[in-house]
Amino acid sequence: MQDRRKKPPAIIVMGVSGSGKSSVGQALATRLGLSYVEGDSLHPAANVEKMSKGIPLTDEDRMPWLDLIGERLHARTTRREGVVVTCSALKLSYRDRLRAAAGGHLYFVYLEGSKELLTKRMGERKGHFMPAALLESQLSTLEVPTGEPGVVTVGIDNTVHGIVDAAVEELAAIR
């Protein structure tokens, strides 16, 4: 996927909680030889506390977090370094904010799955601050990115390796 004449990619692995953003993001970064940024690690403590208590984040809560992610994207793209970042990026306005921070050239891998599969995955994971009870609010907030420029959609009903294979293939097709 990397061509020396092309700018290295900046990629957001997005989706609701439980979609596998972290696992897929890490594996995708490794596969493409890019650096990786875990978006959840950039949440302010107040956001983590709210979510841990089962309280959904508001747009006001998310903006400082999105701005931190945007700063990471901007720094990497300015240095012409490729990067994979995980971020739920639930709304078009959030994705547009991230696109602007990255200088307009940003790819998204949208991890799509059924509510049943997402609920099952969230119930199985250990040690994550996001309780399964918040899945419904994330699904309600989600503005599906189908049809937006630079977005590929990959189903999550596969292994991480299979999901990454599909993402790499789809990204290569639009690059």
Rank of each mutant, 00 (worst) to 15 (best):
L42P: 00
R4V: 11
P8S: 07
A100L: 12
G147N: 04
S140Q: 04
T78S: 12
V13I: 10
H105A: 08
I12F: 05
S19E: 01
R97D: 06
E170L: 12
G25R: 05
V24F: 06
L73Q: 11
Q138F: 00
V144G: 02
M1N: 05
L42G: 03
E170T: 09
V13H: 04
V48Y: 00
D59P: 07
S19P: 06
G39P: 01
T58P: 09
S52G: 08
H43N: 00
D67H: 01
V84N: 03
S23Y: 11
P56R: 03
K50E: 00
V154I: 13
V164Q: 10
L68E: 09
S114F: 03
L111I: 08
R62L: 02
H128G: 03
R72Q: 10
S19R: 07
D40I: 02
S22K: 12
T153E: 11
S17Y: 01
A102H: 11
E116W: 03
E116M: 08
L34T: 05
G25P: 09
A46I: 04
G70N: 13
S137Q: 02
V164T: 06
L142P: 02
P131L: 05
Y110A: 10
T86S: 15
A132M: 05
V109C: 08
E148M: 14
S23L: 14
H74A: 15
I12P: 08
V160W: 06
